[in-house]
Design a protein around this nucleic acid. Structure first.
Length: 594
RNA sequence: GCGCCCGUAGCUCAAUUGGAUAGAGCAACGGAUUUCUAAUCCGUAGGUUGUGCGUUCGAUUCGCACCGGGCGUACCA
């Protein structure tokens, strides 16, 4: 979507200055103070830069360049000249030169009119577009390991991936969400060995995955003392890979137990997938791929293993087969990528996986490229920071892990405490407790740039204040609360909202500020998709919510003046629409009351 | 050792991708409630953007070096 105000300003300025629109567009920023206008251009400095660059080519000294630049014209003068050429029009109300910048104020009335009308007309579609029509994005996310507990590390992948999927959906892309289950690999050998040695089927009762994890931890403790266990585990997995019935049966049992637990969590989070083709799905498809790579002369044997040498690219080799013949993670990923390309013909293949696997992705993307797959450049590793626990990396091997379900349960419990004394039905309270508690957890994971590591801390995750019994500040509940109040407000308005109003009556500064936020919403979604960054939407919603919170504190919306009320209600309606649309993209439920 | 990422208020993070006077939340202190839901709002205080050079008219943003933290570094994923 295009910002017509900005576009208009750029076009005019380009005309006046003789620079290209492209060039002018790069000089646009926002003035430090809102009072100075909405757009600023540093175009007057371009001449200076150009002259000094020119002189640099001629090997002139810096001071000389500056002198010759200022001798001709200084930015201040240029800014004044350019500004004076502007005339008030439909989009721009005034242009002013300030210290070498050209500052433009946009026509407030126009912004209000455009944004409120668009939000009213498009409702739940406002913000979406058709830019992605005909294109397919495949997203690989969540991808937990079978027989391991679902930790908060997987929450990040799940929540970020699900948000990106919705974001791309809303831009008209066809999206395919794949849960690339970690249901294959040596860890099953380890688990099976542990289970056979110390396990007891009868103890699997209520929390089988937790029990299996205990065995897994025990295995790693024991194997430090007894290295022979490693051999046993490898042998077991090899038998599984070769199709032995007994091993297969146990593996399927583990898998079934795990999926049952995972789906409970996905239900809570409101996440679903289009495909569960996990690693095991590719078990019988790797052979031909290895053959293909070999035919292309990419593979070689080294220390008994089959590798693709990536030395020329400054990377350690990509291992396709271990010395014992078993395949590895990279083999499955390469195979899966090729299969997905054939199956979906994607325009983008996105992996939402932690930063600790960066090298792995660089390696296998490179292998794809070397194999002549020109679509390799459309593969993206959307990495995210690790969740550390009291400064330590979490590790399932050492049993250091925070269970996602515990986090969710605790958040829901805190919320129950808040709504306990509300006058509403018990059912309603429970719905609210779930939506708000989960919303708090989801937002906590989506509010920061994904690359940031997060130190998990019970005290601060939810920003819960036990004294006032409330979630405070920049949280999911804050956004939900804003949406709730807007809903309540609109319920209190008994006339019909028909989308018509006298926009000229909205003269408050905040009415303009809010409209401007509403206006840029579609662009925020596009940026979030482009950068694979849901936090852009989180931050945006916080901005919008805090502006509206301030607004209705200062201003009476439903008042005695019918026309004014009508206009303000339309503003509230538009704000509610955008809050709801934004929250839905993040996977947080917009509530009517709470 | 080498590679990648990070370092911004006491804490957690923003900063429109190189623009003007670096902004929010939490915590602290002070204030606002006959309410369109106070899970709210307002105010005060808090900074040599890790350090030092460099590039630029202009640097939190780009380059180099150093300091500190994280991750990775062929048979785990």
């Amino acid at each position: 979507m295009q910002d017509v105000f900005r576009q208009h300003f750029v076009k005019k300025l380009a005309g006046f200055s003789g620079k290209s629109e492209e060039e002018i567009n790069r000089t646009i920023s926002r003035p430090p103070d809102a009072a100075m206008g909405e757009y600023a251009s540093s175009a007057p400095f371009l001449t200076l830069t150009a002259i000094s660059n020119q002189n640099k080519d001629k090997l002139l000294g810096l001071s000389e360049a500056y002198e010759s630049a200022s001798a001709q014209k200084n930015p201040k003068q240029i800014a004044e000249e350019l500004s004076s050429k502007f005339q008030q029009d439909e989009f721009i109300s005034s242009v002013e030169a300030v210290g070498g910048y050209v500052n433009a104020r946009i026509n407030r009335h126009k912004v209000i009119e455009i944004s409120l009308q668009a939000a009213f007309a498009e409702k739940e579609k406002y913000g979406s577009s058709s830019t992605g029509n005909g294109k397919t994005v495949v997203l690989d996310f969540s991808s937990p390991n079978i027989a391991k507990p679902f930790g908060i590390g997987h929450l990040r992948s799940t929540v970020i991936g699900a948000a990106l999927k919705r974001i791309y959906d809303s831009l008209g892309y066809k999206t395919v969400g794949i849960n690339f289950l970690g249901d294959w690999g040596t860890q099953f050998g380890k688990l099976a060995v542990a289970f056979q040695k110390w396990g007891d089927e009868a103890k699997m009762g209520d929390g089988p995955v937790e029990y299996l994890n205990e065995l897994y931890v025990k295995y790693h403790e024991e194997s430090e003392k007894n290295p022979a266990l490693e051999q046993e585990a490898r042998a077991w997995f090899l038998r599984l890979e070769q199709g032995n019935k007994e091993e297969r049966r146990l593996w399927e049992h583990f898998k079934e137990l795990s999926l049952k637990e995972f789906s409970r969590i996905y239900d809570l989070l409101g996440v679903s997938f289009d495909s569960y083709a996990g690693e095991s799905f590719f078990n019988d498809k790797m052979g031909p791929v290895i053959d293909e790579l070999a035919r292309l002369g990419l593979t070689k044997e080294s220390q008994g293993a089959l590798i693709v040498d990536l030395e020329p690219y400054g990377m350690t080799p990509c291992l396709l087969k271990k010395a014992d013949g078993a395949t590895l993670y990279a083999t499955r990923d390469i195979t899966a990528a090729m299969w997905r390309y054939n199956e979906y013909g994607f325009d983008k293949l996105v992996y939402v996986v932690g930063s600790d696997q960066k090298l792995h992705f660089r390696q296998f993307f490179k292998v794809l490229e070397l194999a002549g797959k020109n679509w390799a450049k459309n593969c993206y590793h959307v990495n995210f920071g690790l969740i550390r626990f009291k400064g330590e990396k979490m590790s399932t091997r050492r049993g250091k892990i925070v269970m996602l379900e515990d986090v969710l349960d605790r958040a829901i419990e805190l919320t129950r405490e808040i709504v306990k004394d509300r006058e509403m039905s018990a059912d309603k309270k429970e719905v609210i407790a779930k939506a708000v508690g989960i919303g708090a957890v989801i937002f906590n994971d989506l509010k920061n740039k994904r690359a940031k590591d997060v130190d998990f801390d019970w005290q601060t995750v939810l920003n819960y204040d036990s004294e006032t019994k409330s979630f405070k500040g920049e949280t999911g509940p804050y956004l939900q609360y804003t949406h709730t109040r807007l809903s309540s407000l609109l319920r209190n308005y008994d006339a019909v909202i028909d989308g018509k109003a006298d926009f000229g009556l909205l003269k408050e500064d905040l009415e303009f500020q809010i409209s401007r936020e509403l206006y840029r919403f579609p662009q925020v979604i596009e940026d979030a998709a482009e950068q694979f960054e849901p936090s852009l939407i989180s931050n945006y919603l916080i901005d919008l919510a805090s502006k509206f919170s301030r607004y209705w504190h200062d201003v009476r919306i439903i008042g005695s003046d019918n026309e004014l009320t009508k206009a303000r209600i339309l503003l509230a309606f538009a704000a509610k629409t955008v809050m709801a649309n934004g929250l839905n993209l993040l996977g947080i439920a917009p509530l009517e009351e709470m």
